[in-house]
Simulated scan of single mutants.
Amino acid sequence: MDVRRELVGRTGPEAADADRPVESYTLVTGDGPAVTVWTYGATLVEVLVPDRRGRLDNVVRRLPDLDSYLDRARNPYVGSTVGRYCRGVRRARFDLDGVRYDLDRNDGAHHVHGGTTGFDRRVFAARVEQTNPDEIAVVLRLVSADADQGYPGELTVDVAYRLHRSGRLTFDYRATTTAPTVVGLTNHAYWNLAGGGVVDGHRLALNAARSVAFDADLLPVAGPPVDVTGGDLDYRSPRPIGGAALDNFFVLDDPAWAAELSEPSSGRRMRVVTDQPGLGVYSADGFADRRGGLCLEAGAWPDAPNRPDFPSVRLDPGGTYRQRTVHHFTVDEAE
């Protein structure tokens, strides 16, 4: 196990963290997968995984250079850590302990993925961590000031990418706060197990019998999640994605597994296990690289700060936000 550290470049004068060095950390197993993470946005840039012939391909979509990541028009959260709150908050506001908090409005009247200068636009500090000979990690830290994007409390966040020799990639999140607040983190990687092209030929399975019903703004409507049995969103048995335009949030009731994505031509298979209550699934139809990857975003339910009937996203001083999502990579030998 080894790690390579390189300087990617510097942020520009207009960046949220202006004129800061951006570093790349590549975790190497030596005889299998390798993972590259940048400190800008705590971004997952490469996941090299072998196919059934032993060929290594990058199975997450990436942009060509740092300038592309810095440009919002070219970077729809590609591989980034999303926070303080993933997905949407209706009317960009919520009440906590009788106090109204107004958030940055970056999606019409609403707040999405942490705001205009969310965690995806920040430069994290990084350190390498190795607690056993079979696993190595890069741990990225960000301190988000009180009132950042409207959120209460100073939030200290650690995002760890852990690579095991077996090919297991783990996202570990921790956060603490100085005041009552809300937190919901996720990773916004666009997965493509073929290493290129579109994801239509991939097969998807989801361990979910319910989804959160959305309105035209992709925010939850009143009422409980809906049963997907027998409908277009029933992926409990593996089936091809085809031309389905997915931008949905699925309820995860069984912690055994969340999703399984496979690609027949390469033989690559990725099984996702998480301790989170839901999974956002997005087929990248609005990305310039249309349908070039599939987002599988484990995390909090959308608009939960305004929905007491949804799983709580509250974090208080003295407590610790914890989240773990694991990606297991395997290869199907037979075509």
Rank of each mutant, 00 (worst) to 15 (best):
V273Q: 13
G286I: 01
G280Y: 11
S266M: 09
A298D: 14
S265D: 13
A300G: 04
G292P: 03
M270H: 07
C295M: 04
R291E: 05
D289H: 14
F287M: 11
A304S: 14
A300D: 04
L279T: 03
T274R: 06
S283C: 08
A300T: 11
R291D: 01
A298V: 10
S265C: 07
R271F: 07
P302Q: 10
Y282P: 00
G299I: 08
R271Y: 09
P277Q: 09
W301V: 01
Q276A: 15
F287W: 13
L279Y: 09
V272D: 02
Y282H: 09
R290A: 14
G267K: 13
Y282S: 02
R268Q: 00
P277S: 07
R268M: 00
L279W: 07
A300F: 01
V281C: 11
C295Y: 00
D303W: 06
R268A: 00
G293R: 00
R291V: 00
T274I: 04
V281H: 11
S283K: 05
G299D: 09
C295A: 14
S266H: 06
V273P: 05
D285C: 09
A300V: 12
D275S: 14
R271K: 15
A298G: 14
A298T: 15
M270G: 03
C295I: 06
A284C: 13
R268W: 03
A298Q: 11
G280C: 10
A288S: 13
D303V: 02
V273Y: 10
L296T: 08
V272H: 00
G280R: 15
S283I: 07
A284Q: 12
Y282F: 14
R268D: 00
R268F: 03
V273F: 12
P277R: 10
C295V: 09
R268I: 02
C295G: 00
G286L: 11
P277M: 08
G278F: 12
D289T: 12
E297Y: 10
Y282N: 08
D275I: 13
R291A: 03
V272Q: 03
A300Y: 01
A304F: 02
R291G: 02
V273L: 13
D275R: 15
Q276V: 05
C295S: 03
